[in-house]
């Protein structure tokens, strides 16, 4: 705990020094809420040194707050207007007067029943009832996904790969365009061959599989580069909050 406090004070000292260096640019925030935000930001950042009480506090707070956040969002935006107001409109007169006069739609008893069944998961005696609701969710997801994935991610991608490998632009051969299209066609084929494990990767099949590996390596390299970019952006965002909104150091 003592070490944690030292770390906290070091952090405060660091930002204090930064503030002094830029004295007079703008005033530090006097908004208590901004200070709470800054404290929580620093509490999470303190994990970089080591796990500590401030981090654990912030982490646990996050879990509680986010669970309640999603519950409230779902309740007011979907449950009230799309279920309660459908089953018994007058009940929402005090909160959604605009739709309180609509006629009831009793079909909505089905999702209400399934939803309550879902909550039975918490019951110590009959958690198996929740399987009915779960089965409905799984059935809907699979039914929706099957056709859509078939259309867009399977047939759609094959269609997009059937492209000319000799590209002619303004009446003459485009070397760059042709090369790119060849890489796309060969890359997709070889990538798929690499994922095909029912045949031993030998001979021509093995060569194609090797090419597939290199294409996938470039793909992963590109993804890595973009992931770094994403994470740095988030850090810049937090620093702009600390240095700007909280300390008032940014113009």
């Amino acid at each position: 705990m003592r070490k944690d406090l030292v770390w906290l004070f070091a952090g405060i000292l660091f930002f204090g020094l930064l503030y002094l260096l830029n004295w007079g640019v703008k005033a530090i925030s006097t908004d208590l809420l901004v200070w709470i935000g800054a404290f929580l930001t620093l509490a999470i950042l303190s994990f970089l040194y080591q796990d500590n009480a401030f981090y654990k506090f912030a982490e646990h707070l996050f879990v509680g707050v986010s669970a309640a956040y999603w519950m409230c969002m779902g309740f007011w935006n979907t449950l009230v207007p799309n279920l309660i107001a459908k089953l018994h409109p007058p009940i929402v007169k005090g909160v959604l007067p605009a739709i309180a006069e609509k006629p009831p739609e009793y079909w909505y008893i089905i999702p209400a029943a399934l939803g309550i069944m879902f909550l039975m998961r918490l019951s110590p005696k009959a958690p198996w009832i929740s399987r009915w609701a779960l089965a409905f969710i799984v059935g809907t997801t699979t039914g929706l996904n099957l056709v859509r994935y078939l259309r867009s991610d399977f047939l759609g991608q094959i269609k997009s790969t059937l492209i000319p490998v000799i590209v002619v632009e303004n009446g003459s051969l485009s070397v760059g365009g042709s090369f790119s299209n060849i890489v796309i066609v060969v890359g997709v084929l070889c990538g798929l061959i690499y994922f095909f494990f029912s045949k031993e990767h030998k001979g021509l099949f093995g060569v194609a599989s090797r090419v597939g590996i290199y294409i996938l390596m470039i793909t992963f390299g590109a993804s890595f580069g973009y992931t770094v970019m994403a994470r740095i952006s988030l850090l810049v965002g937090r620093m702009r909050f600390l240095l700007g909104d909280w300390m008032g150091l940014l113009q």
Partner: peptide
């Protein structure tokens, strides 16, 4: 930026354009 590379296969036939990261 994390998801942008995954969406390139949709461009340009299924996705008109994309701002990545």
């Amino acid at each position: 930026a994390v998801s942008a590379p995954l969406l390139y296969p949709y461009y340009p036939r299924q996705l008109l354009g994309l701002l990545g990261g």
